[in-house]
Amino acid sequence: MIKLYTICLCFFLATVAVNAQTRYFTKDGHISFYSHALIEDIKADNHQVLSVIDTESRELAIQLLMRSFTFKKALMREHFNENYVESHIYPKAKFTGRIAEIKLNDTNPYETEISGTLSIHGVEKEVSTKAQVRIEADKITLSGDFNVVVADYNIKIPALVRDNIAKIVKVSFELHHKPYK
């Protein structure tokens, strides 16, 4: 029987090298976003982020479920999923790209650049951002933040709640990768 898991993983890692020795992986990465607006501030967290790094090719692939974002208030989450990002049509956000530099033997944290394609709400955009890399014994941690212009991803905010939601939201990430076995 062809295993769906393997198919998904292959699909997900389509551009990532086959050598498992060079592959690092997490299923519980953390991505959050923060919207600062006139009427209220909104923060949401997602701790179910899937991320894979191939240290040889320096490729990075990230996937998350929009519905896995948790909010302080129930209604915020409902509006986010149903009205803005339309999770029933576009359940996932994806990023595929490359890390400019991976220094496996350097245990001092350093800054590098990540660039690639970010797909949200069915819209793909080229993005690049600075990221912190921290390499410990068997762990590669990527962290940083970047801004997302809501309108770039065809996410429409009704005029009535325009003062509740920022036009630009800050996205932060912290991904602790372990060797893929």
């Binding site: 898991y5 998904c8 993983l9 997900f12 299923k27 179910q48 479920l65 519905r67 896995s68």
Partner: peptide, 11 residues
């Protein structure tokens, strides 16, 4: 909340 390479549940 859906499926990545596992089925995900929250709360």
């Amino acid at each position: 909340t859906g499926y990545l390479i596992d089925v995900m549940m929250i709360k």
